[in-house]
Write a protein that binds this DNA or RNA. Structure first.
Length: 103
DNA sequence: ACTGTGACACAGG
DNA sequence: CCCTGTGCCACAG
């Protein structure tokens, strides 16, 4: 998809993360073809349109995003808990929940 | 249309 | 453990 922007690909990937699983920013970026664009993924997530489960994207340390909207890290953690993910102190165990996309 | 600056990150020192 | 550098994209002027 050459005409599609990086952002479009990020949408596709994040939208495919199943409930109860998460992906890291770096992994999303890598799957989209730019392993070093993790920060950009964060930007896209922040400004991105609704309808995308951004709460299923966490950093490489398993922590929720500091700038998450509308309620910051706590809001993201709550959404993850609603999906049966055990979040402790705004942090989760990536080994248990990391999802390997398989386009 | 172009440039500058910032950002929900990551790896290395 | 803290701090710095790198790299990519999005937004504002």
């Amino acid at each position: 998809m050459l005409d599609s922007s990086f952002r479009q690909r990020v949408y596709e990937i994040v939208a495919r993360i199943p409930s109860g699983r998460v992906m890291t920013y770096g992994q999303v970026a890598a799957v989209c073809g730019s392993p070093q664009a993790a920060r950009a993924v964060g930007q896209i997530a922040h400004f991105g349109d609704a309808g995308i489960p951004w709460h299923r994207v966490v950093n490489a340390n398993g922590q929720t995003a500091s700038g998450f909207w509308p309620d910051g890290r706590l809001g993201q953690s709550r959404l993850l808990r609603d999906e049966n993910i055990k979040v402790k102190d705004n942090k989760l165990n990536l080994v248990d929940y990391l999802w390997n996309p398989k386009t």
